[in-house]
Design a protein around this nucleic acid. Structure first.
Lengths: 213, 213
DNA sequence: TCCATAATGGGACTCCTGTTCCGTTAACCT
DNA sequence: AGGTTAACGGAACAGGAGTCCCATTATGGA
């Protein structure tokens, strides 16, 4: 047999089309938002046939889900500063810079909007944040080792606590997303960690405090 | 003159139509999400002419904006427990119960998704949260008076800090929205307040700590 | 290099969302 | 009560999103 029927051809053209379409989808989402996104427009921007986009991604949410998968793959590595507050501030500022950037901020809004409308997309979004959180969780473990945080502190919970107020501003109250907001988020998280608010399951913040610093 | 041309008639029928349409819109958003919302379907559910919905609200986001205005008007009063932690836990549990409820949770997801797609809707969402925050801010001021929180603590910032992790779970990471999550959010906020992470502008959490408790 | 076929592209077609027109209903004033 | 007209409702209409069909391109193995 020359080529077994059923062979996939992800090389050259296919990969080029995917890259162009995902790029165009990101641009369109950032410019017009989730509601305005139309696959024919994405195809035009990507200089690709409309049929191709409908065949490979099918729906707007399907395309967003693939975009999220792609974004998760090129996730940035964390930086290390030597202290919990320093590490969490670095994380908070990275999130803040991303969300405050006009294009990226609008893109993330659109990604989250899409995730609220479709289970597959929501799953892709969860995977994206799971990767980001896994990347930064070690800084909390290191803080525990250094004695900066009480033993039993849940690293994932801490990283989430840093991002949460910044996303809340982006999506809900429209407050300023400046460096001060980022620093406040990191400082609040550190204070909560020291008070034992993020212990893994034993819900006993009072006594846990003695374990800190 | 019998009736000055240009007189508005908001009585009886008009009010009934608005109530029925907003109710139907809320149901549809909770069931199918923002992307699936079609004004003709809302009209059918509300037993109202399709033309009426298009004429009065025009677009999906316009309808959501009006729904948010309506929700803001019937906002619930806060409860008082006598301590900052108690008050913030009460607030956190109220938010948690709302977001964990299948209908309300799905509705809030849809509302936020709509707000990311339209400026007017975003403004209506901001007003909604501004009202909720104004309602609960006094509990922080009382805590300052009681000496539970450092002078200069920003009440709005504290209330936002309680809600933020719960909304982050709802929208981003899909984590459990149980009572433990609510209590953790309140405890973390109190710890951050005591550490002076929410001082109004003087960014000096270290020295501020002496003012607490 | 050459072939089989996976993958793409163009265009016609369908269906559904949103608009327009006009007749009907009922709110508000006298 | 009675009349004026704001507001509603039904139906026909228009435009665009998504589907289908088939010709064309170019990938990956021989």
């Amino acid at each position: 047999m020359e080529l077994s029927p059923g062979t996939i051809r992800p090389g050259g053209r296919t990969a080029r089309v995917r890259a162009a379409v995902l790029q165009a989808a990101g641009d369109a989402l950032a410019e017009a938002g989730f509601a305005q996104l139309d696959l024919a427009d994405v195809a035009r921007r990507a200089d690709v046939g409309k049929t191709t986009v409908y065949r490979r991604w099918g729906t707007v949410t399907g395309l967003v889900a693939d975009l999220l998968t792609d974004m998760a793959e090129q996730s940035l590595p964390r930086t290390e500063t030597g202290s919990l507050l320093g590490d969490l501030k670095a994380n908070a500022r990275l999130v803040q810079r991303t969300l405050a950037d006009p294009r990226q901020g609008a893109l993330f809004k659109a990604l989250i909007a899409a995730a609220t409308c479709d289970a597959k997309t929501a799953e892709a979004l969860r995977r994206f944040y799971a990767i980001r959180i896994r990347e930064w969780a070690p800084c909390v473990r290191q803080a525990v080792d250094r004695g900066e945080a009480p033993a039993g502190t849940d690293p994932h919970e801490v990283i989430r606590a840093v991002s949460a107020p910044l996303y809340y501003r982006l999506l809900a109250d429209g407050g300023l997303l400046d460096k001060a907001a980022a620093d406040r988020a990191a400082e609040a998280a550190v204070a909560a960690v020291r008070a034992g608010a993020f212990l893994r399951d034993g819900r006993d913040p009072g006594s846990a405090r003695s374990g800190a610093v």
